[in-house]
Each structure stands twice: as C-alpha cells, then as structure tokens.
C-alpha cells in the first residue's frame, strides 16, 4: 500500500518538529496508533483500535523513529499485528520551512500488509491509503490548533 502526501501546516518548522518528536502528539496524529509507550530510545510500543467500514480490529506492535534529522525529518517505522493481518509501514517524513508560520510536510512510504487484510482488502486498499493520509493531516491540523489555542 503506497502512502504519500504533502500538506502545508500553519506553524513554524520548529513547532512542527517538536510535535513530531512528542509521543503524545504522535499517537494522536498517526492513524492506526492510539497510544505510545516508550520502550527504548525512539522506540515505542504502539496500540490501536481501527475502524474503517467493514473492517475493525485492535492492533498492537511498535513504532520507531529512524534516521532522525533535526527539523528536517525522519523515518517512521510502524509494525502492527492483529488477528486479521499485520501491517509494516516505513514512511519517510520530510519538513520544509515555507516561511515563519508555514511548514510543508511531505511523506512518502509503503505499508506492507499480510494475512486477511492483504488477501481481501485489495478492492479498497487505495481508498484506505487516501483515508489514512487525510486523517494524518487532519489530525495534525487539529493538534496544531489545539496547541495554538492552549497557548493563547
């Protein structure tokens, strides 16, 4: 499953970077992850409840940050297992400061599915990818605006 997207976030790159490095925020914005628990440097135990139409399931696995480049980006490796199948996603996230208040976030990666998900989900897989992408950015925007509001 190919995952890619670009989105302009209304925040300076420093702010976006801080949020990306914060496990609480990360858990809130990464679809298919609902909680993160630090187990090692940049490695987390990840849990999720996913519900997408006919598919629902609880996933557990881990999330790790690799290739960390301060304010430039990192690679996000999410491995999730469930009864209906497993997912293994490696996503490269890159930040580009547009101006003092805007940051462009680009990601590009691939999620490998196995089990029932791979076998029976083909028909809607691109829709799922699109939906996850949209969710990711919407979550980020929401987290940002929450953050801004709390600052105000």
């Amino acid at each position: 499953m190919q995952l890619s997207g670009t989105h302009v976030l209304n925040a300076p790159v420093g702010k976006v970077w801080t949020m990306l490095m914060d496990p609480v925020t990360l858990a809130r914005i990464v679809p298919a992850v609902s909680s993160l628990e630090l187990i090692d440097d940049n490695q987390y135990k990840a849990l999720a409840e996913i519900k997408m139409g006919p598919v629902s399931g609880s996933f557990s696995g881990n999330l790790s940050l690799l290739n960390i480049r301060e304010k430039e980006g990192y690679s996000l490796h999410v491995k999730q297992a469930s009864k209906i199948g497993n997912a293994d996603a490696l996503i490269n996230i890159a930040l580009k400061s547009l101006d003092d208040d805007q940051t462009e976030l680009t990601f590009d990666g691939d999620a490998r599915l196995s089990g029932l998900l791979a076998r029976t989900g083909q028909r809607v897989i691109s829709g799922v990818a699109n939906t996850l992408t949209k969710q990711f950015f919407a979550n980020f925007d929401e987290a940002l605006s929450n953050e801004m509001n709390s600052v105000e």
């Binding site: 006919p54 598919v55 629902s56 399931g57 209906i84 029932l116 029976t120």
Partner: peptide
C-alpha cells in the same frame, strides 16, 4: 449482505 460477509471473514466484530 454487506455486514455478514465481513463478519464471516472476521474483519468486523
């Protein structure tokens, strides 16, 4: 006819 097939595959519970 949408729900039961997905439940049989255990994609939905």
């Amino acid at each position: 006819h949408s729900l039961i097939p997905s439940m049989k595959l255990r994609l939905n519970m």
